[in-house]
């Protein structure tokens, strides 16, 4: 492989990393807003939030990407920059998975903590912000770590829309060299290294956050996606 081709690969890595960061941020925002909304007192808010989860978890990320790329501009006249279209599609889809994690972790906080907040006449928002979230967030990190790996794997899908990410640059190199074993092995290895680094990063974050609430990180957390109870927006 020549240096010019390597440059192409490096640019692909950069696009993948950018897309990963943006869609992870959007996904986290969606996850917290929807996840917290599902614990809201109002029935309507809870219904809307669980409707969102059902729809966005029910569909496939790739179809979402196609829809945002092709249907949105044609039907609504909104043409998005490729990077933002991809961020939107991935952030909304993976945010819906994340909202289940947020809801589950909040529900898992000891009920006595919530009751303590009520007894001290905290407002619901103060309870959430000062009592529930600080204890729930560290518990969310291991499942979020798995979801982040899934998101990294999901970013490869945007190459089908012609966005120049790592998978796309791999295809270009294959066409240039007429040889595929080497370049695809490299691309897979690079994805694996990114995934490994992300796992390490999240492990460190978990340790730090758990130390903040006086807990030890769970030893030997299996790095697998939890089989998500897909489709139906959970029983709430």
């Amino acid at each position: 492989m020549t240096s010019g081709l390597w440059e192409l690969v490096v640019r692909g890595i950069w696009t993948t990393v950018q897309l990963l960061v943006f869609s992870a941020l959007l996904g986290a925002a969606v996850a917290f807003v929807v996840g917290i909304a599902r614990t809201h007192q109002s029935r309507t808010v809870r219904f809307l939030a669980s409707f969102y989860t059902t729809v966005f978890r029910g569909t496939s990320a790739l179809i979402m990407i196609f829809w945002i790329y092709f249907v949105l501009p044609l039907s609504f006249g909104w043409q998005l920059v490729p990077m933002w279209a991809a961020t939107l599609a991935l952030g909304l889809t993976y945010g819906a998975y994340g909202s289940e994690i947020v809801r589950g972790a909040i529900a898992a906080v000891d009920p006595a903590q919530r009751e303590g907040g009520i007894a001290l006449s905290f407002t619901p928002w103060q309870r959430m912000r000062l009592i529930l979230l600080p204890q729930a967030v560290p518990e969310m990190i291991p499942p979020f770590s798995n979801l982040l790996i899934e998101l990294l794997k999901g970013t490869a899908l945007v190459s089908l829309m012609g966005m120049g990410d790592l998978a796309f640059s791999g295809n270009l190199v294959r066409l240039a060299l007429q040889e595929s074993a080497e370049i695809y092995t490299y691309v897979l290895l690079i994805y694996f290294v990114i995934a490994f680094l992300l796992t390490r990063l999240m492990r460190g974050l978990e340790k730090k956050l758990k130390a903040g609430v006086g807990k030890e990180p769970r030893a030997g957390v299996a790095a697998t996606r939890q089989p998500e109870a897909t489709g139906v927006g959970g029983v709430s």
Binding site: I149, L152, K153, G154, T155, A156, L157, S159, L160, A167, G170, N171, R174, E179, S180, A181, Y184, T185, V187, L188, Y191, F192, A195, F196, T224
Partner: peptide, 20 residues
């Protein structure tokens, strides 16, 4: 390795490398 890398690239690998 298989679990942490994208299915899309794995499919490309199988689809283009196996014929080689």
């Amino acid at each position: 390795f298989i679990r942490n890398t994208p299915l899309l690239v794995q499919l490309f690998f199988l689809f283009y490398v196996m014929p080689e």
